[in-house]
Computed example of a mutant assay.
Amino acid sequence: MPIEFLHGRVLDPEELDEIRQQIEDFDSIEAIDPEVRAIVERNWPHLVAKLPPHEDQ
């Protein structure tokens, strides 16, 4: 698994897995931190459809 950073801190594999699990478990996601969105886009592109649209759209 690639090394990922969130707000300047390295995420360990368990934290990355927790992010993935939370995205999978949520029925609806109203807002998402831009850094978390980027992590999801890089690691689990199949989950991007569960994310809200980019704020600039």
Rank of each mutant, 00 (worst) to 15 (best):
Glu18Gln: 08
Pro53Gly: 14
Met1Leu: 10
Ile3Ala: 09
Asp33Lys: 01
Gln57Gly: 12
Glu14Gly: 09
Ile39Ala: 08
Leu51Glu: 07
Asp27Gly: 12
His7Val: 00
Glu15Asp: 09
Met1Lys: 11
Asn43Met: 11
Ser28Glu: 15
Pro52Cys: 12
Gly8Ile: 11
Pro34Arg: 05
His7Gly: 00
Leu11Gly: 06
Arg9His: 13
Gln22Lys: 14
Asp33Tyr: 03
Asp25Gly: 12
Val48Ser: 04
Phe26Gln: 11
Leu6Ala: 04
Asp56Arg: 05
Glu41Cys: 01
Ile19His: 00
Glu55Thr: 12
Leu51Val: 08
Pro2Val: 13
Phe5Val: 09
Ala31His: 14
Leu47Gln: 09
Glu55Gly: 03
Glu41Gln: 14
Ile23Asp: 00
Arg42Gly: 00
Ile29Gln: 05
Glu30Cys: 04
Glu24Gly: 03
Asp27Val: 03
Met1Tyr: 12
Ile23Leu: 02
Val40His: 03
Leu11His: 02
Ile19Arg: 00
Gln21His: 08
Arg9Ile: 12
Ser28His: 11
Gly8Cys: 03
Glu35His: 07
Ala31Phe: 14
Ser28Cys: 09
Arg42Leu: 06
Asp56Lys: 08
Arg37Tyr: 06
Val36Asp: 03
Pro53Ser: 08
Val48Ile: 13
Trp44Glu: 04
Asp27Arg: 05
Ile39Asp: 00
Gln57Ile: 14
Ile29Met: 09
Glu15Cys: 02
Ala31Thr: 14
Asp25Phe: 07
Gln21Arg: 15
Asp25Leu: 15
Glu35Gly: 04
Gln22Pro: 00
Leu16Ile: 15
Arg9Thr: 08
Pro2Gln: 08
Gln21Thr: 14
Ile39His: 01
Arg42Phe: 05
His54Trp: 06
Asp56His: 07
Val40Asp: 01
Ile39Glu: 01
Leu51Ser: 01
Pro52His: 05
